[in-house]
Amino acid sequence: MSLLELKQFAVSYGGIKAVKGVDLQIERGELVCLIGANGAGKSTLLKALCGLLPVAHGSVLYDGKAITHQPAHLIARCGLALVPEGRGIFGRMSVGENLDMGGYSRTDRAGIKNDLERVFALFPRLAERCKQQAGTLSGGEQQMLAMGRALMSQPRLLLLDEPSMGLAPLMVEKIFTTIRAIAQEGVTILLVEQNAKRALEISQRGYVMESGTIALTDAAEKLLTNAQVRHAYLGE
């Protein structure tokens, strides 16, 4: 059984269909990327999957259970964590409080403390700035915080929406390295990226989204050599 399975998944804004019947599967332990042009519907898909937008049609099976029309907070409590586009950190809270919010639904104090150490090991910068207001962090630090916060929920499926957006090249590299490290710890990841090349390089499989539908799906290395993909998304 797949960890996540979308069947004929569709989402609309008013009457406008932004996601039109997507089929998508993610197996346990996989790192899968979803690439596509701006406006293809990637963020919409992620948001609806997490319960932030109503699902118009189709179904979401998570670990074999239908979570299609569940409210966002219940979906989050099943171990599905979204790092939203634009990071969505709580700017008027401290870095530490943001991380606490990540563990909001947990009650195992020891486990929370343990995961906090793990996050600090992954992002030492966050440990240094623990007491600082999150809104004063740089863009890259905010992205680290958003990812660290998601990890604090002990996710089984991590959804990342454009984590490298707007970051300096060095920070982009750091973010991709970290994503790979998180995947190697056994967290299943669905990565949405504009930076298709880097995303495909670290992923096992990829989906290509075009105006609300899946245009193409294959193993990542095949997509990297696919002429169509190279032309449209890798700028070659």
């Binding site: 932030l52 966002a72 907070h73 809270m93 919010m101 916060r149």
Partner: peptide, 16 residues
């Protein structure tokens, strides 16, 4: 406080 800043992100943290 989290809800005051962003109800959507708060709900992603599991806040009802």
């Amino acid at each position: 406080r989290a809800t005051a800043q962003s109800p959507q992100v708060a709900s992603l943290m599991g806040v009802n």
